[in-house]
Amino acid sequence: MLRHFGCRVQLASSALEGLRALCAERFDLIMMDIQMPGMDGVEALGWFRRGPGERFAFRTPPTTPVVAVTANALGGDRERFLGLGFDEYLSKPFRQSQLHTMLSQRLNIPDTGAGELTPAPAEPALAGAPASPPAATAGALDAQALQRLRDLDPTGANRLLERVVQAFETSTGRLLPQLDEAHAAGDLDGVKHVAHTLKSSSASIGALKLSALCADIEGMIRNNEVQALGSRVAALRAEIASVRGSLHALLLPAA
């Protein structure tokens, strides 16, 4: 989405990697995930706002806008994160129009409307992927959410939907063993981490029931109401299997 708006984007897989990138060059805006491995987004913001020092020789000015990005979506989150020093707040999954509104305010990009953008340059396609996804979708997926993904890649040249589906497959393949191990060990924080990780990604691909199950599990653990946790984890596993089946059907070439 950022590239669709003409932004040059650099990704960081952790807060520490992101802070080091801010030392290497100057950026106009930072989108900061709150929950990250190791250092979280709030601690990273604290280091950045201190400015250049012995540990981090920032080239990006400490007054640069920093947007808090989180999948928690709890009441009062926006006020809390703004109070902590963030300049903006986006709750995942956010829509292209929401991102465009924020960028137009913070970076003064032309306010031409999110639907009037020139598609990004094509990227290499996945081997074996169909030229374009079929119009219909399966029951475990929300058609409107999938359409929003298609709208980001209207010609299908970037194979965006296929790449998102592949990323979801990879993610669930990694997270399911973590879920089983954490649940078997009674590690509630581990179970909550998996649920949180899956919550926004599943909503982004239209797996709204799966996203709601993840939110339920997060809430149960946060409120220490875990009597029915086993049944919810079982339901989560079953819904992941259903979503995977729907995704596979979605990407089958039209007959």
Rank of each mutant, 00 (worst) to 15 (best):
L179T: 14
T118D: 09
F81P: 00
Q98H: 10
G41V: 03
R163E: 13
G230P: 00
P154N: 08
P110V: 02
N108G: 11
G76M: 07
F168D: 04
P121N: 02
A44D: 07
T197V: 12
A195K: 11
E25W: 02
T118S: 04
Q10P: 03
L16D: 13
R174D: 10
D153A: 11
A235W: 13
G18R: 00
G46E: 03
H196D: 10
R50A: 07
A24H: 07
E218S: 09
S246K: 11
C7E: 02
A44C: 11
F56I: 07
I217S: 11
P65A: 01
R148C: 06
A182S: 12
A241R: 02
P65M: 08
G186Y: 10
V69D: 01
L198H: 04
G219A: 05
K192R: 15
R78F: 04
A73R: 15
V194F: 00
D28R: 10
G51S: 02
R163W: 06
L82Y: 01
V226S: 12
Q105W: 12
M220Q: 13
R49G: 08
Q147L: 14
S171T: 15
P52W: 00
S13Q: 14
T170M: 08
T60I: 00
I30H: 01
G41A: 12
G113Y: 10
L126A: 09
M102V: 10
E17Y: 01
A129V: 06
H100P: 14
K92T: 15
G190H: 07
K92P: 10
L45I: 04
G46Y: 03
L152H: 03
L251V: 14
T137G: 05
S91H: 08
F58V: 00
F27K: 00
A12E: 00
V226L: 12
A73G: 11
R49C: 06
A21T: 02
P154V: 06
S204F: 07
S246V: 10
E25K: 03
E79L: 12
W47I: 03
T64C: 01
G219P: 02
L160P: 01
E123M: 15
L160W: 09
M36I: 01
V191C: 10
M31Y: 02
R49W: 04
A73Y: 09
F86W: 10
T197L: 08
H248W: 12
A238S: 11
R78V: 08
D111W: 09
L29M: 08
V164E: 15
